[in-house]
């Protein structure tokens, strides 16, 4: 929780700025869209956080989003599968992708960066080839299934704001992962593995399985997120759907206090990290800045956040040393 305070501060500052300077920011429709987007990206960022906790990285998130997202309408419309066949298949495929990453990393001892970089190229390539690079969509059908992402719930007392349904899976996942990390034996072991893999192994922690599991969870969440995204937007191009989403997810996790060195995570921080990036993006658009500058702003904020974190950490370490070092 302490690790999340910094990002909550940054979030509030940007929020206040947006409320005052971005036109139409506080309209119901904009806030609804913002909540929806934050929830969707949170699903991906939570998965990224699980991998980052182990000291690893997953660069394939965006491509898994694309493959899972594109496959959903492709199987439903082109191949006329039922939703009861499609959803389990796509999720199982996503988990399998994660399993491959995990085994390559823990058994073959390949570097996570390389394995998932290959994944990034591989899965997008497959998605484009499979669909003939054609846009895939629901053709106005399957409204009942898409309601998973599209439904909005009225909140008593609010007239022009309704809560997007995507908030539910995002929050449930956040709570589950939060409890997993802080309360379960596996969570403790996962954090320990990220902190010092070798010491964890010597203590009897099944590190290889935990690391593999975290890659499975990350890809599974990316696949699930990809489905939610496609349900939300209705149709997408295999060539650009999910582009850079892994970087948004990683950036949000790092902003939220997950150290890329591993062993540290805050679920609350990750959620606020996602929200910060979404509000920034929204404000850039609303305030009339060219949307091309968005990457530059996100990059700048990330750099500032990480630099501030490092400085605070050093300051704390120095204070600890002054207070504690005897001998």
């Amino acid at each position: 929780m302490k690790r999340a305070l910094g990002i909550i501060g940054i979030f509030l500052a940007i929020l206040v700025f947006s409320i005052f300077f971005a036109e139409n920011f506080t309209t119901g429709i904009n806030l609804m869209q913002l909540t929806n987007r934050t929830a969707l990206y949170s699903v991906l960022a939570l998965g990224a956080a699980l991998v980052i906790v182990t000291g690893g990285i997953d660069l394939s998130i965006g491509s898994v989003v694309c493959l899972a997202g594109i496959m959903t309408p492709w199987l439903l419309i082109e191949h006329e599968w039922t939703p009861w066949q499609v959803i389990p298949t796509v999720l199982a495929m996503s988990a399998f992708i994660g399993l491959c990453h995990g085994l390559l990393i823990t058994r073959l001892k390949l570097q996570p960066f390389l394995v998932t970089l290959c994944g990034l190229l591989l899965y997008r390539g497959i998605a484009r080839w499979m669909t003939g690079d054609q846009s895939q969509g629901f053709m106005g059908e399957y409204g009942d299934v898409r309601a998973i992402a599209l439904a909005k719930f009225s909140i008593p007392g609010l007239t022009d704001y309704r809560l997007p349904a995507t908030v539910i899976p995002a929050l449930v996942l956040a709570i589950l992962i939060g409890l997993f990390l802080s309360r379960t034996v596996w969570g403790r072991w996962l954090l320990a593995t990220g902190r010092n893999e070798s010491a964890a192994r010597y203590s009897g922690v099944p590190t290889a399985w935990l690391v593999t599991g975290s890659y499975v969870a990350c890809s599974l969440l990316a696949g699930f997120g990809g489905m939610l995204f496609i349900f939300d937007i209705g149709s997408a191009q295999p060539s650009d759907f999910g582009n850079f989403y892994e970087l948004y997810a990683i950036a949000a996790a790092v902003l939220g206090g997950c150290s890329l060195r591993g062993g540290e995570a805050s679920v609350v921080g990750v959620l606020f990290g996602v929200a910060t990036l979404r509000v920034l993006q929204n404000t850039i658009t609303l305030a009339g800045y060219s949307s091309q500058i968005e990457f530059a702003v996100v990059g700048g904020v990330l750099l500032l956040g990480v630099a501030a974190d490092e400085l605070i950490r050093r300051y704390a370490a120095r204070r600890l040393e002054r207070a504690g070092a005897v001998a």
Partner: peptide, 13 residues
């Protein structure tokens, strides 16, 4: 330091 301990973590953990 390398194989036994999590130096940045508390004794309890």
């Amino acid at each position: 330091a390398r194989n036994g301990l999590f130096l940045e973590n508390p004794v309890a953990m």
